[in-house]
Nucleic acid binder design. Structure first.
Length: 324
DNA sequence: AATTCACGCAACCGCCCAGGC
DNA sequence: TGCCTGGGCGGTTGCGTGAAT
């Protein structure tokens, strides 16, 4: 009816790798008009690309704040645990790693982590549940978590540091552009493609209108999932703990983003804590441990948090949680 | 040095959902 | 109210590159 047909089926649409010239055209256009209304991009720029391709190129490659290169053990841990918790919800997982795109995370999972997890699952198969909760968790925390939790040799090695120490100009520009997905410096890894330098060269201004935050929606989704899953396991306290960890992550996440988000998330945290207390069990300790594990880098706290996480997720998480 | 193989990643494909008409 | 589209997301593909032979 109302709308003209999508360009996706149009004739003469170019496919394949993007050229630097196309990247420059796309970035220049978005710099002037902002992201969104992707259908207008090829029309107004002359790019022989479909709107989806433009959007994908921007979101996965050109937008500022994207960190490329190797994933840190910290990031690996977050991905593995969130994948175990949420499944292949790459966009949701990516919301916890604002420097990484869902496509990147998906690729990394498929090429690296899936094999890793599978291998370790097989190794722990004969004594799965026991090793899951005790031996594996404690051993891994003792032997490998320091690197996993904190890697001081790499200034760009963890996302949460950036979440809390995000003060450079580019980051601020990026945050203005993506208020719901805190972004960080692109200087972390050497760019493998000249296109990665384009966002740095083209100073992004404040033209990008803030989009409605998704953090509360994500939190709400995760919360309901966690509640459902754990309550099915007759573990309301565990459900509340997981919900709180999600809320905490979102709260911390959004604290960098906007005060509105923070207040909203705080309400959700309070609601979740209330749920836990209603069951007569204190979950506050586990909350903070989980939050620390997900978002902080203090080695000791993180190791403790990992144990806490394992305790509440045992029997739920199918993936062997320790592999570093 | 040439060929084969495996891997990583950018990009495409297809589906779903929300919203415009 | 139902059709249609744009945007978003997860799954898959294909090409480039480096390692192995």
């Amino acid at each position: 009816m109302g709308r003209p047909p999508c360009c996706d089926n149009g004739v003469g649409v170019k496919k394949g790798p993007w050229t630097p010239e196309e990247d420059i055209i796309l970035v220049s256009y978005i710099q002037q008009h902002g992201p969104g209304n992707w259908r207008s991009v090829p029309e107004n720029t002359g790019l022989m690309r479909c709107s989806k391709s433009c959007r994908l190129r921007w979101t996965n490659y050109l937008r500022p704040g994207i960190k490329r290169g190797n994933f840190t053990p910290h990031e690996e841990g977050i991905i593995i645990h969130l994948q175990a918790l949420l499944g292949n919800k790459w966009a949701a997982i990516a919301s916890y790693l604002p420097q990484r795109t869902d496509n990147d995370i998906k690729n990394y999972w498929n090429t690296h982590l899936k094999k890793k997890v599978k291998r370790l699952q097989q190794q722990s198969q004969p004594d799965h549940h026991h090793s899951f909760q005790t031996t594996t968790a404690s051993n891994a925390a003792a032997t490998t978590s320091p690197n996993y939790c904190h890697n001081p040799s790499s200034s760009s090695s963890n996302s949460s540091n950036h979440l809390h120490n995000n003060h450079n100009l580019e980051s601020m520009q990026s945050m203005a552009a993506y208020p719901n997905t805190t972004t960080c410096s692109t200087t972390a890894t050497a760019p493998s493609n000249e296109a990665t330098t384009i966002p740095k060269l083209l100073q992004l201004q404040t033209w990008m209108k803030p989009s409605p935050t998704t953090s509360e929606a994500v939190a709400s989704c995760y919360k309901s999932m966690a509640m459902q899953e754990f309550q099915e396991e007759q573990e309301p306290a565990a459900a509340a703990a997981m919900v709180s960890s999600i809320n905490g992550a979102c709260k911390d996440h959004s604290a960098v983003i906007s005060s509105d988000d923070k207040s909203l998330s705080s309400e959700m945290v309070a609601a979740a804590i209330g749920h836990g207390e209603a069951d007569g069990r204190s979950t506050a300790t586990t909350f903070s441990l989980l939050e620390n594990w997900l978002l902080d880098d203090m080695p000791g706290q993180a190791m403790s948090a990992m144990d806490g996480f394992l305790e509440i997720s045992a029997g739920y998480c199918c993936a062997d949680p320790i592999m570093f």
